[in-house]
């Protein structure tokens, strides 16, 4: 359901999830199909805009500015870290993270409680992002594909995670909001210790 059509009592998507309906799941399928397409090379200007957005987002996470990071997301957003390669069917499968706006707000709140022992000490991370491709779809949404390497250090142990991101960004004034951030870990269905870091 479009956010503009939400009944008033459900407008606050950080507290309600009335919009995450069957259509919302169907739209997710269409985003994945778009992200799997071959795209033409983007004009330098667009490529630069996409890259800058990703760098900014990554920096907010690396600096632990999770409230600012949360502000980048749209009300009908999804932060998605699938277990099954490619995502599987989330209607019948679980994900490492399948966060609508409310659950993403929960996640940030959880990280900031100071009581999450899996984040005491907190993960130090550095996101490196390359292979950026971008295209604007007919509805004006910016699609971005990129490759990431996340270095993490926590509790005396350094770890590395690799994979690719799929972003769907919605125009928002002069800027963009994240409608979908899909995090495709190379080894999403394999052994992992403590995946409580933000990708």
């Amino acid at each position: 359901m479009r956010l503009s059509a939400l009944p008033p009592q459900f407008r606050d998507t950080s507290a309600h999830s009335f919009h995450a309906d069957a259509d919302w799941y169907d739209e997710l399928d269409s985003f994945r199909a778009l992200l799997a397409d071959d795209w033409p090379a983007a004009p330098v200007e667009e490529w630069h805009l996409a890259q800058s957005f990703l760098s900014r987002e990554a920096r907010l996470v690396d600096e632990g500015r999770f409230n600012d990071w949360l502000d980048l997301f749209a009300g009908d957003c999804l932060y998605w870290v699938p277990v099954t390669a490619g995502g599987g069917d989330p209607r019948r499968e679980v994900s490492h993270a399948f966060d609508d706006h409310r659950r993403l707000t929960d996640r940030v709140y959880w990280l900031r409680t100071g009581l999450a022992y899996s984040q005491i000490p907190a993960s130090r991370t550095r996101h490196a992002i390359t292979n950026v491709e971008t295209v604007v779809d007919p509805e004006g949404r910016r699609l971005v594909r990129s490759t990431f390497v996340v270095h993490e250090f926590r509790a005396g142990v350094a770890k590395t995670y690799a994979g690719w991101y799929g972003h769907v960004l919605l125009p928002h004034g002069d800027d963009w909001l994240i409608r979908l951030k899909m995090v495709n870990l190379l080894d999403s269905e394999q052994y992992h210790e403590n995946l409580t870091l933000v990708f």
């Binding site: 277990v83 679980v94 394999q190 052994y191 210790e193 995946l195």
Partner: peptide, 11 residues
Amino acid sequence: LGSAAYRMGFR
């Protein structure tokens, strides 16, 4: 079962 499993690990 059917859904891919979480393979969580701890030291």
